[in-house]
Every structure is written in C-alpha cells, then in structure tokens.
C-alpha cells in the first residue's frame, strides 16, 4: 500500500522538464523574450526592467511552468563569435526558439544564415522550432510574409519537425504566450526526445 501511495503521489506531482534553447543574432531580443516569459508564466516573478537588458555573453537560465510541463530556457549569447558554442547545447535540448529582429532588414540575410546552420544540424533532428519575428511593436518593422520570403531558402531544409513562425513583441509581451503554449504542445508530443523527469521534492 505504501508503494502504491508513493507512486500515486509521484504521478500527481511530477513535472516533465524540457530544455528550450533561445537562439538568434545579437540584439534580436532573446533575453527580453526570456524575461517576458518569466513574467507572464510565473505568478510571483518580479521581472527586471526590460530597458536594463544588455548584451548577453554566456547563458541566461530561466524556468517556466506551463501545466504539467516545466520549460527550462537556455538563452545563449548571439554575437557571431559566440555562435560556435550553440551546438554544444543541441544534444540535450527539446526545442528551439529562434528570434529574429524584424526591424533589422540589413542583417536579415545574416540571421537566415545562422538559422540555416541551426535547422540543418544533425544534433537537432526532429526538434520543434519556433521562429519569432520580434519587435513587431515597431511601426516600420517587416511583416511575417516579408520575413518568410527572406527565409524561403530554408523551407526545404527544415526537415521533418514541428515549425511555426509567430509574430511577437518581447517588449510588449504580444505573441509570447501563444508561442510558448505552442512549444509546450510540440515538445510534449515529440516521442523522440523524452523529457527529463524531476520529482518535486
């Protein structure tokens, strides 16, 4: 009977843990997106002032609980020199959020190049990818169709995986919740990358 109760307790309270990488060029808004996510999904979290966010070197870690799933975000530095470190995290991750700066038309080609490397990596085979067209609060930003056109070369290289392009503004929070809920749905149903299971203790 003790074993049954113990097992029942674990079943009711365990959280499936998924690691989500947040990638993209520097200044695309990755850390702002992470900060906004923590604010929106964690009731007691007091976010930092978004204006205080500076260039990330290293790894910002954030945790978000959505239903029975726990997302552990790894927000990696996006400077060109740091992109060679991204692949060190691929094997352990369950999802990728790729953030694009919709206002930076000049660097769109550069962003596409980096994105192509991400989706063609063997270590990320089958991993869901959420593409966020960020900074949609800016009047003069590129629209989703514009961005899809710029990234059209990559369509054939995405391979067999869940993929969604979502308009968003990390600054205002628009599109953030929808994106994360989509990601949760995808990582949960992806049988090829089972979650890390953590008992709540």
């Amino acid at each position: 009977m003790y074993t049954l109760l113990s097992g029942l307790y674990k079943y009711m309270f365990q959280k499936d843990e998924y690691c989500i990488l947040i990638l993209g060029l520097d200044n695309a808004g990755k850390t702002t997106f992470l900060e906004q996510s923590k604010t929106r999904f964690n009731k007691n979290y007091k976010g930092m002032s978004l204006s205080k966010i500076t260039t990330t070197v290293g790894l910002n870690i954030g945790t978000v609980d959505v239903g029975k799933a726990r997302l552990m975000f790894w927000d990696l530095g996006g400077q060109e020199e740091l992109q060679s470190l991204w692949d060190k995290y691929y094997a352990e991750c369950h999802g990728v959020i790729y953030v694009i700066d919709s206002t930076d038309e000049e660097r769109l080609a550069e962003s596409k190049q980096a994105f192509e490397k991400v989706v063609t990596s063997e270590a990320l085979c089958g991993v869901p990818v959420l593409v966020l067209a960020n900074k949609q609060d800016v009047e003069t930003c590129l629209s989703i169709p514009d961005i899809k056109t710029a990234f059209s070369d990559c369509t054939s290289k995405i391979g067999r995986r869940d993929c969604l392009t979502q308009a968003c503004s990390a600054l205002t929070g628009k599109g953030v919740r929808e994106g994360i809920e989509w990601m949760v749905k995808c990582v949960v149903r992806n049988v090829h990358r089972p979650p890390r299971q953590r008992d709540i203790t």
């Binding site: 966010i53 070197v57 910002n60």
Partner: peptide, 10 residues
C-alpha cells in the same frame, strides 16, 4: 538587475 548572482552569464 537580471540574475545579479548568475554564474552562467557574463
């Protein structure tokens, strides 16, 4: 400030 004691971000 963001993660003032963070040891993973510079």
């Amino acid at each position: 400030d963001v993660q003032p004691d963070s040891q993973t971000v510079f």
